[in-house]
Nucleic acid binder design. Structure first.
Length: 567
RNA sequence: GCCUCUGUAGCUCAAUGGAUAGAGCAGUGCUCUUCUAAGGCAUUGAUGUAGGUUCGAUUCCUACCAGAGGCACCA
């Protein structure tokens, strides 16, 4: 790697000046005109060397000039003492040659077993846009981890018992005359039943009592009629979610449910009650977090029921027994941050090795310009509704295109999902997303469709070349009058971006890079012809176009966005 | 009250402690006999406040101000 060579060369040059440094940093300057790589070593070692940064830089450069490292065109000193390396066009051409379908992959997670948990929904309730955030982040991190050579399993942990279920079943009983046969209407019916139960619970004392009873009945499976309704609703929920997962491009390897984790959680807590990790307090079993700077949380209620905390402990064990992971990542909204700190602290006292393998990662909350989303306020954006709404916008846009209806349907879905995922994954995952439909779902400028469109254009160029029988080719002769383009200066960096996104668990690095790359490509595209039988550089331009398309496809895959062939 | 997170352009977001703080949207003005105008080109505009650390701070530390989230039997 050229980076390592340059670092060594700098260290060697410093050594001739009597300065020994352990680490030399090399980065891409923000400004492309400042070169392809830059080192701040002169500033960093100024104190040690007792010289002015610029003087050190000059001397290092003089030393390096004696024999320019391979691939380097020129070296300059700039600013406060930056050493800037400009690379030769042959370096970029070589890099382009290596861009194939596997470009961006590495083996840094080879042998690592990872399990990533996301989209944790509650059965009998809607999958809303908060779950979509979790899904997009989790799916992207899964794919990035796969690109880094890890063995990745996806899991989702779903709430299949609890008050929300009782509310839905209360509603189902009330609306039992309306239970639909048509499978398309079932999910909507369930939503209606939940809304009814939820409202009744708050507004009607009798309903509240009844729902609490139902909750117990459901838990104990004591009423055959209720069991039937439960089984029906559970099935409807699961298959409805499955449809959405499919649309979103997720296929889970494991589905965990609270009905499984609850008994296990109780067992774990009971065992560790004797060891003094948990203690009784006001009839409940709690974990005292205060000695660790955390707060106390209830794990088993006064009624002897496990809370989410206890269930989470059970889940950790069940998960590990299903798949002995090196690293488990749990993705939730950041409102659960403190809660997870307590649970993981408790687990670390029970089973330190297991706890150390689990990482809680949180994404921000979705907020509407009008405030927080909530089912009580009736402003919940469901995943299904959002996708449908965006799809219809796309359909409107493409209605006059020369395509079959089936093609339009496929395209509408690809573009709609692309637009939504882009709007969620474009920013660092920790921050809240202010979601304004008209502004957030964009087809222009920095957007999913912008990236898809630039890919389609590239493919279109390649198709035209194919028709004219001009083939992409990288050859020294083609480069004689060639001036390195900005496009080339970015293409080869893709693997670094993937690695960084994986290491820092930040998919938005991929999006940011792709957006910059697409901008550069589009600008280059508009600047002159790529396919031109009279242009000797045309085969090289085609090679760049092909490389761009490959990277765009791979990069978009990493963030879960599909590429259309036409649009 | 305590704990955590976040304050960057009119709006939505970028910026591994580095160079002149980048984009997009919105506004304004150009640009389709060409390979898809969901595009390209040009242009206006910003680091909450006050200190500190550092050769260098949007980034690290302290205080304050503002917003969000959490703080015992919901998840």
């Amino acid at each position: 790697m050229i980076v390592e060579e340059l670092k060594k060369a700098i260290q060697k040059a410093l050594k001739t000046m009597g300065v020994v440094v352990k680490e030399v940093e090399l980065e891409h300057p923000a400004e492309l005109s400042h070169g392809d790589f830059s080192s701040n070593i002169a500033m960093a070692s100024a104190k040690l060397a007792k010289q002015k940064p610029r003087d050190i830089a000059e001397r290092i450069v003089a030393e390096l000039q004696k024999k320019l490292p391979t691939g380097v065109e020129k070296i300059e000193v700039a600013g406060a003492g930056f050493i800037n390396f400009h690379l030769k066009k042959e370096f970029f051409a070589d890099a382009v040659k290596n861009i194939d379908a596997d470009f961006g992959k590495n083996q840094n997670l080879k042998g690592q077993k990872l399990i990533i948990e996301y989209t944790n929904t509650n059965l009998f309730k809607e999958l809303h846009i908060g779950h979509m955030m979790s899904n997009n982040v989790g799916e992207s991190l899964s794919r990035i981890s796969e690109f880094r050579g890890g063995e990745v399993k996806r899991d989702t942990y779903q709430g299949d018992v609890g008050l929300h279920v009782a509310k839905a079943i209360y509603g189902m009983v009330e609306l039992s005359a309306e239970i639909p046969e048509d499978s398309h209407l079932k999910a909507a019916f369930l939503g209606k039943a939940y809304a009814l139960g939820s409202t009744a619970y708050e507004e009607n004392k009798e309903a509240e009592v009844r729902i609490k009873e139902l909750n117990k009945v459901i838990f104990e499976k004591s009423d055959p009629e209720i069991n039937k309704l439960y089984a029906w609703g559970r099935e409807v929920s699961l298959s409805h979610f499955e449809e959405l997962y499919k649309k979103l491009g997720t296929k889970f390897d494991y589905y965990f449910f609270e009905t499984e984790t609850a008994p296990r959680g109780v067992a774990v807590v009971q065992e560790n009650l004797e060891k003094g990790i948990f203690e009784k307090s006001d009839g409940a079993i709690v974990f005292k977090g205060e000695p660790y700077g955390l707060h106390t949380r209830v794990f088993i209620t006064t009624q002897g029921l496990p809370t989410y905390e206890a269930k989470e402990l059970g889940l950790a064990y069940i998960k590990y027994e299903n798949y002995p992971f090196d690293r488990a990542v749990i993705i939730t909204a950041n409102e659960q941050n403190d809660y997870f700190k307590v649970v993981l602290k408790a687990l670390s006292l029970i089973d330190s090795p297991l706890a150390s393998r689990i990482l809680h990662l949180s994404h921000g909350m979705l907020r509407l310009p009008s405030g927080k989303m909530g089912s009580r306020k009736g402003n919940v954006i469901t995943g299904e509704g959002l996708i449908a709404q965006v799809e219809s916008l796309v359909r409107e846009k493409i209605k006059d295109r020369e395509m079959s209806e089936a093609e339009k349907e496929t395209l509408a879905e690809i573009v709609a999902i692309g637009a939504i995922k882009y709007s969620i994954l474009r920013q660092a995952i920790g921050g809240d997303i202010i979601f304004d439909f008209d502004k957030s779902i964009s087809f222009e400028g920095d957007s999913g469709p912008y990236l898809q469109y630039s890919y389609v254009r590239a493919k279109s160029v390649l198709q035209k070349a194919k028709n004219l029988d001009i083939k992409p080719f990288v050859g020294v002769k083609l480069l004689q009058n060639w001036e390195t383009t900005t496009l080339e200066k970015l293409l080869y960096r893709f693997p670094e971006v993937v690695e960084r996104a994986g290491r820092e668990l930040e998919p938005h690095y991929v999006i940011t890079f792709l957006t910059e790359l697409a901008g550069v490509f589009n600008s280059w595209y508009a600047n002159g012809k790529i396919v031109d039988a009279d242009d000797p550089a045309s085969p090289y331009k085609l090679a760049l176009t092909e490389a761009f398309a490959t990277i765009m496809k791979n990069g978009l895959w990493l963030v879960g966005i599909k590429v259309p062939e036409k649009m």
